[in-house]
Structures are given as structure tokens and as C-alpha cells.
Design a protein around this nucleic acid. Sequence first.
DNA 1: TGACATTATGACACCGGTGTCAGGAATTTA
DNA 2: TAAATTCCTGACACCGGTGTCATAATGTCA
Lengths: 337, 337
Amino acid sequence: MKKVTINSVASHAGVSKKTVSRVLNNEPNVSAATREKVLAVFKELDYTPNPIARGLAQNRSFIIGCLYDNPSKSYITRVQTGALEACKENNYNLLIHPCEFRGEALINNIEQLLQTSRLDGIVLTPPFGDFAKLVSFLKSKKIPYARVASALLQDDSISVRSNDEQGAFEITEHLINLGHKSIAFIKGHPDHSATQQRFKGYRRSLASHGIEFDERLVEEGNFSYHSGVDSARSILDLSPRPTAVFASNDYMAAAVLKLATQRQLKVPDDISIAGFDNAPIARHIWPGLTTIAQPVEEMTKQAVTQLISHIAQPQEQPYQVTLESRLITRESTSAIK
Amino acid sequence: MKKVTINSVASHAGVSKKTVSRVLNNEPNVSAATREKVLAVFKELDYTPNPIARGLAQNRSFIIGCLYDNPSKSYITRVQTGALEACKENNYNLLIHPCEFRGEALINNIEQLLQTSRLDGIVLTPPFGDFAKLVSFLKSKKIPYARVASALLQDDSISVRSNDEQGAFEITEHLINLGHKSIAFIKGHPDHSATQQRFKGYRRSLASHGIEFDERLVEEGNFSYHSGVDSARSILDLSPRPTAVFASNDYMAAAVLKLATQRQLKVPDDISIAGFDNAPIARHIWPGLTTIAQPVEEMTKQAVTQLISHIAQPQEQPYQVTLESRLITRESTSAIK
DNA sequence: TGACATTATGACACCGGTGTCAGGAATTTA
DNA sequence: TAAATTCCTGACACCGGTGTCATAATGTCA
């Protein structure tokens, strides 16, 4: 079976390569008759253009790169799902690039990636979207990029985020409305902007109820399960023990739950636990975790869709959107006795 | 800043394009002096060859596709990790392609994928490696492929698997040695070959201890957490209740644990629970799950490494390897009272 | 109906590499 | 030292598309 190229189509249809190319790209200045003839040959020969040849001619790869370095694997999975949907709709492909966030090597690493892969654009997933050096590097190289779940910036970029501050506020409200006054908090990774946002929401809720903020109730985590275990240990050792714990993500919340259960504490009777993200684990454990559901897939999908349309036709104005998150109550939180 | 191409290198070094190309590809018949001169210019101009141009000339894309459709997200993450390592070492990129396993559309879907992406090869992750139609389709299209964690076949392909039968045997032995005689079993997805293997190992262990196989203790799951909940319900309703449950993966085991805990059963005192895979959840819950650790990353890495070397230079003999798995005991299993 | 604007089409170079082949330089052999 | 062999090197076509520009065909208007 011979390969079907633009040349075979052209000779088959009795027109030039260029005309075939025009039909392929929906360019104007092709007569209706010619267009139909060519389209018929497409079908007859079952022709699909070679994306590599097209890429060479246009200096494009039709590939989007997805950068990540996240302790939460499920978060990555969700990001990928959203990105893939957007790629699929636009005939793009997704290249995944896990990459150490820390260290000086990052910029070199990315430079290397760009040189070897000729990516058309990059999606920056947390925490990369907040890494100023990287963003300005991409800007200087004129590589289109989109930031997912990062802080808002006054720039010309594509940014899709959710309102973490508000989510944290709402879940803290939920706990306070259940009668809790002593609510421990586990922070996320300091380099993630979500960490500050969630902490702010927690404090705003406390303040709005006149509950004094107590620094001893705050632990430094980094979004990993392991860090949750360490934080949980400190919190459960406090005396008096707080009646509730709000962890900045579900993995850390799950760690608190595990440790509490290990120590014979009943959740939520002895202590309420809340998380953030609505990761799968939140409903896979008992009791299920009260948490904030974030539209991670949708955020990423929108970001990538915008990125691709920006690549095709650079936009003047920035695309900056904030999506809503919502409270999901499960069994891990209850009214104080 | 002008783009650095093979032409600029050539004129800079005072040699022809072709000679530069020879140096690039480590071809013979280049004098040491010329080679050094060209290499120096590479450094001086910071040259990296354009993979798209190279791909066009050689009809290669330097991209491997990873096919998956798996209820266990963590499994996918691990597969990706292994595949990425292999790609990185060989300057390949990984394209991920989630794809419904069921349905007639599969072959069309893959055909579409191949036409639009010009993949150099495909990794088939469970259950795709066991789907005969797909395998023979790829063979007929002469697309190199590698099968991960699939049943052994008498063919010329690349296949890396682990010994699931032996793993299931060992974990069942573990339970029997703890004194359990009534051990329920939750099967995996019927289309995964691992499902049969694990079931076989379970039965072999029973048989080797003269424990009669009891069909009422076997439930049909499909590897998803949800299916585990359904199976757990049936098992916990049995009377007399089995003293142990061996679920074919950790998600289903976690579901059993959740339901048991919900019903006020103490694990492992009232009932022991064992899983399979050593997924993250196995250590994120309390009690931690006794399970079988599989080298998923390593399997995939080996498969992709072989695949890439096969693409570069088609091998005569098949590469068929079986890696060892190992028992990990945690708190969810204990001696019968 | 002739002058001019517009539309349709193809020839050809180009994107940045690799494959083929011919011919000159260097080395070995007689 | 001449002939034969091997080693280097470059010219050129090619991979399968797209961009530029000239020209042919058609349409519009006076």
C-alpha cells in the first residue's frame, strides 16, 4: 500500500499541490467545483495530512507541553484529563513533562525541552505558574503559555484559577457554624500560591466570627501525605486539643484522619477533619472527608483551549478567569458536642 | 537572534550540511579533525537539531504513544512515570492517549491517532495488551508496540509483566499462615489478564493447604473502588462471615475496609483485609493494607526502552520478561483469634 | 466591447534535516 | 612508483507540506 501524500491527491485530482493545500486549510480563492473535486479525492484515497511535514513548513509541532511537579498524583491526573480534552478538540497532542520545581536547573531543563520538542505552547500547573523567573523566561523566548490555578497577575497572559480564598473561607465557616472555635490549620507548600490563599480564607472566616487567631494551631505542611502526618502529630499533641482540623488538601487531611484513628480518636465525634480539593481519597476513606471541590479539569481545559487559540491567532487582551469551587460535606465533620 | 540550523553550522564550520549530519548521527567516515571542528561549532552556536525536520526526513516522530483505560488512576501515574524515564533517556517524548477499551470504535480511534500523530511506537498498558484485535491490527500496520503486564503470548513482541499468579499465591499463603481458612476473594475486571492470574494464585494456595474452594466467597469486581463497595457488601453479609478478604487490587480492598469500618467491624481483629498493587492508598489509610508490591514503573520503563531500541533496530527475538513482585505486610491482616 | 479589477491556479522556493552517489584524497598493495 | 583500495567529503534530490508571486480565467464597469 503506497503512502497517500499531498502529491498523490494532487495528481489524482488533476490539480497542483498548492490547490490541495488550499482546500486542506480552508483558504479562500478556490472555486467550489475544484474544492469538491479535491474533497472527493480526500475521501477516495483516505488522505490525512502529515503533521510532521506541516509542522516543518510552519515551524509548529501541534504539541502542547504540560509542566508539573506536584505531590498530589491525583491532581496531576485531573490536570492531564482536562488538558487532553482541550487538545483532542483541537487536534493537538499533549506532552507531559514532570520536572523538579526547585533548583537552578529548571530554566535549563525547560530550555532543553523547548529545543528538543518544539512545543507550540506550555501549560504551567501549580506551582510553576507562580514562578516569576520561568514566566519571564518564556515571555522572553516568546513561547505561549497558560497558567493554571496561579495567582492573578497584571499581565497579558492566559490564566484560569479558582477562588481558593473563598473556598477556604466557606469550609471554615462550615466548621464554625458547627460550633467549632478551636480549629487547627495545616498549610500547604510555601511555593504554591494556593497556600497563601487558603490560609487567608481561613483567617477571614475566623475574624468574621470574632474568633481570635492562634498561631499555635497552625502547622506548616507541603501538600504531601507525609507532611500531613508530621503536622497531625503536632496538632494531636496539643493540649487542649483543637476540636477541628482544616488541612489545605485532602492528602494531608487523610493523614490527620489516619493518625487520629491510630490514636483511638473517633472522627468526627472527638475531632472534625476537613480537607481541600475533593481528591478521590476524600471519598475512599471512612469517614469521608468534608472538602472543597475544585474544577481542576475544567480549569485546565479552559486554559489549554485558550492557549491553542492564542497560538493560532495571538490575542490582544488577556484571558483571566476565576471559576467557582464548592463545599462538599461528608462524615468527617460534625457539630461539637 | 537568528535560528541556528544545520546550514548555519555547516557554513560556520566550512563544511557541507551532510558532513554536519554525519557528525550529528555519529556516522563513520568523518575525519577526527573535521568532527572536532563541527562539534566545536555545535557548542559555539548552541545548536540543537530540529526534531521535526529530522522526523520528516526519516518518517519518524520520536514520539511514543501510551494507551490506557484503567480505573486505577494511581496505576496510570506509575505507568507514565516509568514510560517517561525511558523516553527521557532516549530523547523520545511521550504522548498519552486515554481511550475507551470497550466498543467497536477502538480500532478506528487508534487508526485516527496513528494518522494524526505518526507515532513511532505504542505502549499497551492493561488491558490493551490482551486485546487480540488491537494487537493484530498494530501488527498488520507494522506499528511497533510493547505490552505491559499482559499475558504471555507466543509471538515476536515485546512484553514485560510481573508474576501476578505468584503474588496472589503468596498473599493467600500469608493469610492462611495466620490461621485463616475462610478467605473471600474479589475478582478484578474480567478483561484484564491479571484478573485470571490473581484468581489462579488464590486457588493454588487454597489447594496446597487442602482448603476447599468455596464459590460463595468469590465476588466479581472490576478494579474500581465502586465495584469494591458492592462486593464488600455481599461479603460482609455472608453468614458465617469470612475471617479474611483478599481483593484483587488496593482500591477494592480500601472499599472493603471502608464498609467494614462503617459497620463497626474492627480490622484486622474482626476481619483481615489484603489488597494487591501497593497503590498509595494502601499506606494512606488506617489500618494500612497488606498487599503485593508490583514494579509497575520498572515494567513500563523496560517495555518502553525495548520498544525504542526495537524501533531503531528491529530485533529478531522477542523480549519477554517477568519481574518479581513482593509481599508487603501492614496492619490490615493479623492472626485469627 | 474594451479597460480594469478580482478570483483562481500553478510554478517554484523553502522549512531543516537525511539518503544516494560520485569523485578526490589518503592509504595500502604489488 | 603505479595501481588498487579505502576513506572523506560534498552536490543534489527528497521527505510532505506551506508561502510567494506570476499569470490565466473570470467578472465588472463605463
